[in-house]
Amino acid sequence: MDWPSDPALYPPYLRSCIRKRMGIGEGADYRPWRMLKELPTSGTAAVVHGIRVSRNYELLDTKSTAIFYLLERRRTISDIRERWPILDLNRTLQLAYKFDVVHPCRAGVPEPLTFDFLITDQTAEKTYKAINLFRAENSLNAREQSLMRIRKAWCDEKGVDWVLVDSSPISRTVVHTLRFIRTWYVNCYKPNAAVSKRFSERFLKEYARNVVLDELVEKTGRYLGLRPDTRLDTFRYCAWIDQIPVSLKHRLACDLPLVLRLETHD
């Protein structure tokens, strides 16, 4: 799913954005609609280099970052596009009239509605899913609800799944843990399927809930004859692909006992 790249197909006030390829393209060629520097943020925005697609992702806050990490871990997802715009303005303006809500505007002209994420899933065949985030503790007002109805109606017409995700359960601990295990990629660790399988199997045999992570990693790595500088990143990668079922709800650190999901049912 992609929008045409010819600026002449869009209203004049959108053409400069289209020329910059904002909201256009797939994979590494995609750029989000509106860059971070153009948007108000809470100070927790992040620029993250993607694992599945080699480009920088601009994420508005820690909740968005955590959702992005969770999506990256799903093996069937081949592309993730943040702030993907509905450039079909004629239709969204019609839907705004239908739902009796003022369409978003910027500088006095209609501004495209966006999804927080549009993902490409290749489970059996290529499908698309649009995601918008909200926090249950900050219930949507009437206008926000109407704008969500526009998004859903447009997706229904196009055969795109649309989901509204409550990001409230995502705590700082979840974000910290995801970042900790994702560091294997930041450290340029090169995964090896056979090594990962042997490491995770041995690690789970060594596991005891009162033993700190450093000790478990050292025992496992020494048993397998791994270089000391690769042991922790091997663990991180195994946790990232869920061969070691780490609990995201418990703080993860080298000097703390490890909690596995088997114990917590999270």
Rank of each mutant, 00 (worst) to 15 (best):
R74C: 15
P85H: 03
Y69H: 14
F99A: 00
K98G: 01
D88C: 00
Q94L: 08
T76C: 12
W84Y: 15
I67N: 07
L95D: 01
Q94V: 03
D61V: 02
H103D: 01
D88G: 03
I86L: 10
Q94T: 03
F68Q: 06
W84S: 05
T65F: 06
E72Q: 13
E58V: 10
L70M: 15
I80H: 08
A66W: 07
L71D: 09
V102Q: 12
L95R: 00
D100F: 06
Y69L: 11
L95S: 00
K98A: 06
L59A: 10
T62P: 06
I80M: 04
L89K: 01
F99L: 01
L60A: 14
L93I: 13
L95H: 00
R74P: 07
R74F: 15
R75V: 08
A66Q: 08
Y97L: 13
A66S: 14
T92F: 00
D61N: 14
K63Y: 08
D88E: 01
S78Q: 12
E72K: 12
I86M: 05
A66H: 13
R83H: 07
L93Y: 05
R81S: 09
F99D: 00
L95Q: 03
E72L: 04
R75P: 09
W84H: 13
V102P: 07
D79S: 05
I80R: 06
L70I: 11
T76I: 08
V101Q: 04
D79N: 08
F99S: 00
R83S: 06
R73E: 06
Y97H: 14
E72Y: 11
L93S: 05
T65M: 15
I86Q: 07
T65K: 14
P104C: 06
A96D: 01
R73H: 05
W84P: 08
T65A: 15
K98F: 02
T65V: 13
D79A: 02
L59F: 03
D100I: 02
Y69D: 12
I86W: 10
I67D: 04
E72P: 10
W84K: 06
R81D: 07
D61S: 09
E72V: 05
L87C: 08
R73C: 05
L70Q: 12
S64F: 11
V101S: 02
E58S: 13
I77M: 09
I77E: 07
L71F: 03
L87S: 08
A66C: 14
K63R: 09
F99H: 00
V102S: 13
R73V: 00
D100S: 11
S64D: 13
R83I: 02
A96F: 00
D100C: 04
L71V: 02
D100K: 12
Q94H: 11
S64W: 02
R83E: 11
L89E: 10
R75N: 12
P104M: 10
E72R: 07
I86K: 03
L95I: 03
